[in-house]
Structures are given as structure tokens and as C-alpha cells.
Simulated assay, not measured.
Amino acid sequence: MINHTPIRRLQRRAFSVLLACAAVAGLGVSAPALAQPYPSKPVTVVVPYPPGGASDALARLLADQLKDTLGQPVLVVNRPGAGSLIGTQSVIRAPKDGYTLLFTGSALTIQAAVNKKFDVNLERDLAPVSEMVRSTFLIATQTARPFKTVPELVKFARERPKDLSFGTNGAGTTSFMIFEYLKSLTNIEMLHVPYKGSAEAVAAVMAGDIQLVADPVYTLHKQVEAGNLRGLAVTGNKRSALLPNVPTVEEAGFPDFNITAWIGLLAPAGTPKPIVDRLGEAVIAIMKDPEVAKRSSALGFDPSGTTPDEFNRKLRTEQAMWTKLARERNLQID
């Protein structure tokens, strides 16, 4: 009597292979790309900034946590230069397999809007994975200045347009765009004074060399609490727990004013959606961890952790806002 069991097993295996191939074809991914479960080798996270600083520390915190979540080594590689363009383009040109990721921040959407040399198209080149953290900024001035609120600041600027200046860490930064957006909304003018870094701008406003500065709440709140600076408003859509008595710009009478710096993770465009989704789920879980949230807060960030779709919508909205502002205000960096 013939034993048909081995034949049936071979038939079932063949059928399973056909199903897998059909699924792969539906995703538009070659069979070898999904021959092994993701990830099956180390993952590289590219940071387009120099080593050191809070952003780099956050990248290494993420890598350490992702290593445990994904079960593979996660390597952080710093590739600074050209306003983050070098590192960004290295990821864009990388294989679309989820093994090379970009860890970057708000400069991505700003540079794409104002810098002609920043040849990056977000929709064409990158696949958003997750916004990890965000940081609300504080618009601050010396306590001796006559204006105590944003409406009073606007009134002062209209009455004495040549007597108001703001300092930033350079054109095309989040601080710079905050003031340009405020100028656009209120039809006022203020002189921009660029500095080599935000610390120099803060020192200048405290010395009375300039009248205004915008920097993360985390870096300014102690100066406000000590009475050295006055917080006029925070730029996000909710008050900061560090300065709960300081209103948002929106509360001050400017609807839909919501500008925060962010740091997130992106993959090359064309990376298979199941891989992007898995990475997104991993980042969300990591940012919900109490210890990670605590360490992120210690670096000056508010943990967020968003889905790929949520991050994509944020980037599109932000890109449209900055592009419109750059066109209206003729903001171009050559």
C-alpha cells in the first residue's frame, strides 16, 4: 500500500511557497528581500549632525532600545555636513530595505523650503517612521522691556519698528522661522541678528544687545524663574509644564500658531510598508517606556511617538507652511 503522507506534505509546502510569492508580488518586493524575517542583520541609524549634544545622545538612546526590540545590533553613524544634507542624502540613496534609517529633526522641512541647495523632496525621497520627541520654544525678552505679552510686543513693534530686534542661531533655523511666522501673521517688522549659536543669542538678549529670543523652554525656564528673562509665550499648542503660567501664542490671540521642534526617524522612500510599520510600532513602544521618557525629558525633549501616517501628515503640513512662508517672505538661503 502506497503512503501518500509525504506527497501531501510536499503539496502543502508548495502551496505555502506560492502564497508567500503572491504576497511578495502584491507588496512589490523581490522574494529575496523577504526571504528572511526583518531584521536579519544590523541596522544603521544615520545622524546628519556631529557627535555630542542632546540630539546625538537621543539617537544613541534610541539605538540601544531598538537593539533589544528588534533583536539585532543598531549602529549610530554621524554624517554631518552641508546643513545635514550629506547624511540625509546618504540615506535616500541607501537600499530600500529598512537597514539604513535617518535620525533627523525640524531642519529637514525648513531647509527643504528655504535652501535651494538642499535637494530633498520629502514625498519623493523619504518614508516617515515616527516622530520620537518634540520641543516647545519660548519667546522671551528682558524683564525691563515694556511689553509683557505678545499683543503688547506687536503694538510696540508697530509704534517703534526700528527699535526691535531678535537673535537666533542663524537663518533657516526653528527660532528664525518662529519670528518670521509671527511677522507674517501680524504684519510687523523686526531686525534679525544671527549668532553662531543659541547660547550667544540668549546672552545677547540678557545683555540688552537685542530685545527678543526664541529657544526651547528647557534651556530658558531657569532664567525666567530667576527673573533674568520674561517669558512672553510658548510656541506649541499647549502650555509647558516647566512654565505653566506662560500662555501659548495661540492663547495670546493668534489662532493655529503651533510650532515645535521635533526629532524623528525616517527610511528611504520605497521601503516596504510592513517594515516601516514594524519600526513605527517599535519606536512608539520605546517612547512609552517610563525610563526612556525620563531620560528624554532630561535631555530637554517631550516624548511623543507617533505612527508613520501621523508623522507623514505632520511633515506634509509643516512643509506646506514653511514653503508658503518662504515664498511670502522671500526667505531663501543660497
Rank of each mutant, 00 (worst) to 15 (best):
L153V: 08
A214H: 05
F166I: 08
E123W: 02
P48H: 06
Q223T: 01
I188K: 11
N3C: 05
L58I: 12
F257P: 06
A94V: 08
P95D: 15
E281I: 00
L58E: 05
N330Q: 15
T248G: 12
V213S: 04
K314E: 06
V17T: 11
F179T: 00
V213A: 07
V234L: 08
M1C: 09
L18R: 10
E200R: 06
R124Q: 14
K324T: 02
T271V: 06
I92H: 09
N245G: 14
T136S: 14
L243P: 09
A203R: 12
G53L: 09
V224S: 11
P146G: 08
A14M: 09
L122P: 06
T141M: 05
G231L: 11
L325C: 07
F301Q: 05
L10E: 04
T174W: 03
W322D: 00
V249M: 01
Q223D: 15
H4R: 14
M132A: 13
E310M: 08
I263Q: 10
R145K: 08
Q36N: 13
Q36W: 13
S90I: 05
A35D: 10
A293H: 04
V202P: 00
N228P: 01
V17S: 08
P51Y: 11
S106F: 02
N330S: 14
D68T: 14
A252D: 14
G83D: 14
V133A: 05
N78Q: 09
V24N: 01
G264I: 15
P303V: 00
P37F: 03
V43N: 06
K155F: 13
T173Q: 05
M321I: 00
G270Y: 10
L75H: 15
L70Y: 11
V17H: 03
S106L: 04
N258F: 02
S240N: 09
V47I: 10
E281W: 02
L164K: 01
T307D: 03
V76F: 06
L232P: 09
N228A: 13
T109Y: 03
